[in-house]
Simulated assay, not measured.
Amino acid sequence: MQRLIFVFALFLSISSAAWASDAAQEAYDRADYATAFALWQPRAAEGDPQAQTALGSLFAYGRGVARDDDQAVSWFRKAAEQNFPPGQFALGGMYLQGRGVPADAGQAAFWIQKAAEQDLPIAQFYLSGMYEAGTGVSQDAEKAKYWKDKADVGFRDLLPASVLKQL
Rank of each mutant, 00 (worst) to 15 (best):
residue 2 Q to M: 13
residue 6 F to V: 11
residue 7 V to D: 11
residue 10 L to E: 10
residue 11 F to P: 01
residue 14 I to G: 04
residue 14 I to C: 08
residue 16 S to A: 11
residue 18 A to G: 01
residue 20 A to G: 11
residue 23 A to F: 05
residue 23 A to G: 02
residue 23 A to D: 15
residue 24 A to I: 02
residue 25 Q to M: 12
residue 26 E to M: 09
residue 28 Y to I: 01
residue 32 D to A: 09
residue 35 T to W: 04
residue 35 T to F: 07
residue 35 T to D: 05
residue 37 F to D: 02
residue 37 F to H: 14
residue 38 A to T: 11
residue 38 A to K: 13
residue 40 W to E: 08
residue 45 A to T: 10
residue 46 E to H: 09
residue 47 G to N: 13
residue 49 P to I: 11
residue 51 A to R: 09
residue 52 Q to F: 07
residue 53 T to M: 12
residue 55 L to T: 03
residue 55 L to Y: 07
residue 57 S to T: 13
residue 57 S to G: 10
residue 58 L to I: 04
residue 59 F to S: 06
residue 59 F to Y: 15
residue 60 A to H: 12
residue 61 Y to S: 09
residue 64 G to Y: 05
residue 64 G to E: 04
residue 66 A to I: 03
residue 70 D to P: 00
residue 70 D to T: 07
residue 71 Q to D: 11
residue 73 V to S: 06
residue 73 V to D: 04
residue 78 K to N: 04
residue 81 E to W: 03
residue 81 E to Y: 02
residue 82 Q to S: 03
residue 83 N to E: 14
residue 87 G to W: 10
residue 88 Q to E: 15
residue 89 F to A: 08
residue 90 A to H: 03
residue 91 L to N: 01
residue 92 G to H: 03
residue 94 M to I: 05
residue 105 A to E: 15
residue 106 G to T: 13
residue 111 W to F: 12
residue 114 K to W: 03
residue 114 K to F: 08
residue 117 E to H: 08
residue 117 E to G: 11
residue 118 Q to I: 07
residue 118 Q to Y: 10
residue 119 D to G: 06
residue 124 Q to S: 07
residue 125 F to S: 11
residue 126 Y to L: 14
residue 126 Y to M: 14
residue 131 Y to N: 01
residue 132 E to L: 14
residue 132 E to A: 15
residue 133 A to P: 00
residue 133 A to I: 01
residue 133 A to K: 08
residue 134 G to M: 07
residue 137 V to A: 03
residue 139 Q to Y: 05
residue 141 A to I: 06
residue 144 A to F: 03
residue 146 Y to N: 03
residue 147 W to A: 01
residue 147 W to C: 05
residue 147 W to K: 02
residue 148 K to L: 15
residue 151 A to R: 06
residue 155 F to Y: 06
residue 156 R to K: 10
residue 156 R to N: 12
residue 157 D to Q: 13
residue 158 L to G: 06
residue 160 P to Q: 12
residue 161 A to H: 13
residue 162 S to G: 09
residue 165 K to G: 01
